[in-house]
Structure formats: C-alpha cells, structure tokens
C-alpha cells in the first residue's frame, strides 16, 4: 500500500451521528489524484452526509478527512473551499438574483488580495484583480458553454444550464478536488450525455480529482473509474464499475433482499 499522502482525498473511519441515528459509520475512502470516483447507494444511504462532512457543513462525530495529507476535519466550509475542495448541491443552490457571470465571480472572491478599503477606493491593485477576475470568469463560462447567457439572471436559466453553472461556479474557486452531488439529476438523456462529456473535460483541463454522487447508473458506470457503495450508512462494496455491477450485496441493496423476480 502506498503512502497515505499520495492520495488527494482520504476519509478515515468517518462517523456521523445525529442523536441516536448513525447516518454514516466507519466510512473510509481513498481517492488518488486525478481520479473520477463514484459514491452510490439507495436513497437515505448517507451519501450527501458524507459530502457535507468532507465540505465542512457537518463536523463528523468520529474519524478524519485529509486533503493531500493535511487534516481538514471540522474546518469551516469557507476555509475548506480555500484549501481546495469545491462542491455542487443536490438541489441546485445558485445565487438566484445574481447574473450568471456574477455567480462565477463570487467563486473568485476567495482568492482576492485587495482589502475592503482598496475595493471601496478603487485602488490599482483592486482594479487589476477585478479585471483579471472578469476575464477568467468569462473564459470559464465560454468553456462550459454558458458564454451566451452570461448576463442572464441565474434563476432564468433552464434546469440543465443551472446545473452547468453550479459546476462552473465551483470551478471558479480553482479547486483541487471537486464534489458533485447528483449532477445529472433531472436531466434528459441528451443533457446527461453532454454533462458526462463536461465532467471528463474539466477533469483533464483543470487537473481535478472528482468525487461524484449519482443515481443515474449510466453516468456512474461510464465515467467513474472506481466507486464505493453505501447502504444504511455502511460501505457495502468498493471497486471498479464491472465488479460493482456483479456484486451480490449491491444488487440486494438496490432491489431488496428476498424478492423473487417474476417474469
């Protein structure tokens, strides 16, 4: 086994207890750099809880999260974002009243150097930073195919584009690890196809390590190199897509045990 520091993201024995309910227990995960990793499981298995622990929304009751060997357990979400983890949300959480471009610009805000006073007085350093931000944001929007709608209100975009914008906003923080929470939810087959292409593209272009939760099996099986299956907060399987597809416990978790298939 290679050194723990070689992995981009490592979760060790994470437990998340809500009162008497163990949403996740003994969760472990090691993702190597530039991997595309899937996290799947039936509804209520604890997938989003794992995301919330990694991104700092929740502090785990046990275990630790390491990013490139550095412990980030229990840090605030904004600090974790600064350390290099960005995420999207299961139910889209855009800044609805801001334009598409402004949404992406907010993602750049964490790298600002100019202080509030400099921004207020329009000092040269601030003006330069602002124009750099604007340029890279516009480029990013072009890259993900939202260049035409940059000045629309985010809430005015169709669903598929809102999902794209969430990914673009996350990329604007220049993450090293990207967490995607059900990116294909609610998309039609054509949109799903484009999304898969987008995910593969951004991984290559931005040198990203991607962890994604997905229900759409086509997405997971096609683009993920490895995956972990959760059920009732426990890991029930881990491996390559083909190994998972034929795993008895996984099939049982998804279809239910003791059911005799009728033809």
């Amino acid at each position: 086994m290679s050194n723990m520091n070689d992995f981009a993201l490592v979760c060790e024995n994470i437990g998340m207890q809500f009162g008497g309910l163990a949403a996740v227990s003994n969760f472990a995960l090691s993702i190597s750099e530039r991997a595309l990793y899937g996290l799947i499981g039936p509804n209520g298995a604890g997938k989003t809880t794992v995301f919330n622990v990694i991104s700092g929304v929740l502090s785990p009751t046990a275990g630790s999260v390491k990013l490139f060997g550095k412990d980030i357990t229990g840090l605030n979400p904004d600090e974790i974002a600064r350390r290099g983890i960005a995420r999207t949300f299961q139910n889209i959480r855009l800044f609805r009243n801001l334009t598409v471009l402004e949404n992406v610009l907010v993602g750049h805000h964490l790298r600002r150097e100019a202080t509030f006073g400099e921004a207020l007085l329009a000092f040269p350093r601030y003006r330069k930073e602002e124009s750099d931000m604007l340029r890279t944001s516009e480029e990013l929007l072009e890259d993900v195919g939202l260049g035409d709608v940059a000045h629309y209100r985010a809430s005015a975009l169709p669903y598929g584009q809102q999902r794209r914008l969430e990914i673009a906003r996350a990329l604007a923080t220049r993450p090293r690890v990207l967490l995607l929470d059900e990116p294909a939810a609610g998309m039609n087959p054509a949109e799903t196809e484009q999304l898969m292409q987008l995910i593969l593209d951004v991984r290559d272009r931005f040198n990203l390590t991607i962890l994604l939760i997905e229900h759409e099996m086509k997405v997971v099986m096609n683009i993920c190199e490895r995956m972990t299956v959760l059920d009732h907060g426990q890991i029930i399987a881990e491996g390559t897509p083909s190994a998972i597809q034929s795993n008895e416990r996984v099939i049982k978790a998804y279809l239910g045990g003791g059911v005799i298939a009728r033809h």
Binding site: D78, F95, L105, G107, L110, A119, E129, T173
Partner: peptide, 22 residues
C-alpha cells in the same frame, strides 16, 4: 465590487456562499 457580490451571495444562499469560500 467583489465584496458587494459576496454580500448578495450571502443574501441569496448562505450555504452555497460559504461553500464557495465566502
């Protein structure tokens, strides 16, 4: 300014703003 956009982001969605490093 960038700070103003961050404020508006906090208004629209605190959770998302924090996840974006605000």
């Amino acid at each position: 300014s960038s700070y103003g956009r961050a404020l508006k982001a906090v208004r629209d969605d605190e959770v998302a703003a924090e996840a974006m490093g605000v």
